[in-house]
Design a protein around this nucleic acid. Structure first.
Lengths: 318, 318
DNA sequence: TTGTAAGCGTTATCAT
DNA sequence: ATGATAACGCTTACAA
């Protein structure tokens, strides 16, 4: 017991005793057994992070932010790759099993209809744009405002026929929110919203962006600006436009969303929205640790929205 | 005890008893407490992965491969960001503390001199090019062969003054091995090795590649090919050459190393070495699980080298 | 086939 | 200030 008191810096240990204990610990190369401590305390000091994929510029950056924020609180992070709605739900129910004190879950496949499933008696914070007002704390991007700002920027640079690259819009999600922001900006500028300029893609990678840009160019679609809802799509679009012999920013201006590190060095460098990833990561970990530390069952749940800033580069003539 | 037998699928449980137990488990929403099981078994089912940074195209891809390989074995992965030699050594000694059954350590800051520190009585597999023949299992890249192949490819495409972008060469590491491969290829082709063509940079990111390429162009250095020891450097070089008004591949050909996903879509698309990341990840996890499962103390240690293939794209006129 | 006992290493509680 | 005791929930060994 005295050893335990020394290890945990409890008061009421005579300095000379403490010294003796520390000396013995050093001599015997003693290490606390965390499995035993966890068993006793019911805590592991590990939080789970469930993301669709670690190897993506966006989720990689998010993971880095969360690992850093957890480190500041002496927590470690276990990573789960979800890749599908089913796995997201699994991560949720397996979180306690996997020895996590709590879970930060990126909801990319789940939708508002799954919201009830989030009711677990285990600390959870959800990231993403598909579930709002659910039974858990939630951190989202400033989608509407940022999409408006990005579109407005294209307008200010003289674009009049602005296309958007987004996903299928069936329910509230990243695509629908950013599409709404785009529409609001067009309306505010007095520009018509032309359905042929709304280009929907199945995935948000560079491949899809490049393919779609080539199709748009070949089909003779009239456009002078493109707002892509991810930087990956936007870099793909830059590639596709180059293939089609279209000059950026002279003929068409392009703006993305995420400010992944590659966007600064692409040719041309990519204008984009920087969504304060680190701030969001910090808030998510903060909410989770509060839930972990509070003994009482769930009180009201918080919905937080991050900040953003516009980064103007060559692709919009900056 | 009978419950335990049911949970662990032990024989000698009467089917009717098993049913009763399962029914009660369902009714009570029973979950095994892994902390208790871990304490008893001395295993956690979690392996640690220590990488310099998760948010990099290369380490992100590596992490994805390792998570996938671990998943196939029903293991989870805890991620540690090291970022420095000290943290790499810490990860080593903290691995057992952090409840990992074993550790996959990327040695980017440690060097051969630290090799002895790897002698821990805890399963460890080291990745990287700085430590060979150490007291642990080790998986490395096919640096020499791949660097030779990349350089030879530039020669075959008609380059005669081939520069290399690598790091400072003080001891055996990624830079030195790839530089050696480069030299071997030049020699085999009967080309002289000009010291002014060996360009050393402090870090291997896009920023450094771009800066250095601009300097090389401005200084009037005569070169018609560049072998960059990472794709990030190479993409930066493409950017820097574009800034200097130099045409790729017409005036200068560029090849990288890693085959990160961005390289396919860059403008121009980047020729590169694809080092079979998934194969290396699979081998690392395989070696680690063997160490974890074998009771005997360390037998001989294995040094494995991965495969590679050349990916020819626009930046070398492919 | 089922159940009892002991112990994994820690810490909360309570005596001393 | 120090230490004895019990308990966290599980599994190995062994008894019934």
């Amino acid at each position: 017991m005295t050893v335990s008191n020394v290890i945990n810096d409890h008061p009421n240990v005579r300095p000379s005793t403490r010294e003796k204990v520390l000396e013995a610990m050093a001599r015997l190369d003693y290490r606390v057994n965390l499995a035993a401590r966890n068993l006793r305390k019911g805590r592991t000091g590990v939080i789970g992070l469930a993301v669709p994929e670690v190897n993506s510029p966006y989720y990689g950056r998010l993971a880095a932010g969360i690992i850093a924020a957890a480190e500041r609180r002496n927590l470690r992070v276990g990573i789960e790759q979800t890749a599908s709605r089913e796995n997201e739900l699994d991560a949720l129910s397996l979180s306690r099993n996997h020895q996590y004190d709590g879970l930060i879950l990126t909801a990319a496949g789940m939708s508002q209809a799954d919201s009830e499933r989030l009711k677990v008696d285990h600390p959870v914070v959800v990231l993403g744009d598909r579930i709002f007002g659910g039974p858990v704390d939630h951190v989202a991007m400033p989608n509407l405002e940022a999409a408006r700002a990005a579109t407005r920027h294209l307008v200010e640079r003289g674009c009049r026929r602005i296309a958007i690259l987004c996903g299928a819009v069936e329910e509230v999600d990243t695509s629908s929110l950013r599409l709404t922001g785009y529409r609001q900006a067009l309306e505010a500028a007095g520009l018509p919203s032309d359905p042929t300029l709304i280009q929907q893609v199945g995935r948000f990678g560079m491949r899809e962006g490049a393919q779609r840009a080539r199709v748009m160019a070949r089909s003779g679609l009239d456009f002078d600006g493109v707002f892509c809802i991810t930087d990956s799509l936007a870099m793909g679009v830059l590639r596709g436009l180059a293939d089609a012999g279209i000059q950026v920013p002279e003929q068409v201006k392009v703006i993305g969303f995420d400010n992944v590190s590659e966007s600064e060095f692409f040719i041309p460098s990519l204008s984009t929205v920087d969504p304060d990833h680190d701030g969001m990561a910090e808030r998510a970990v903060d909410l989770l640790t509060r839930r972990i530390e509070q003994i009482q069952p769930s009180t009201g749940h918080r919905d937080l929205v991050g900040d953003f800033s516009l980064v103007v580069r060559e692709s919009t003539g900056g």
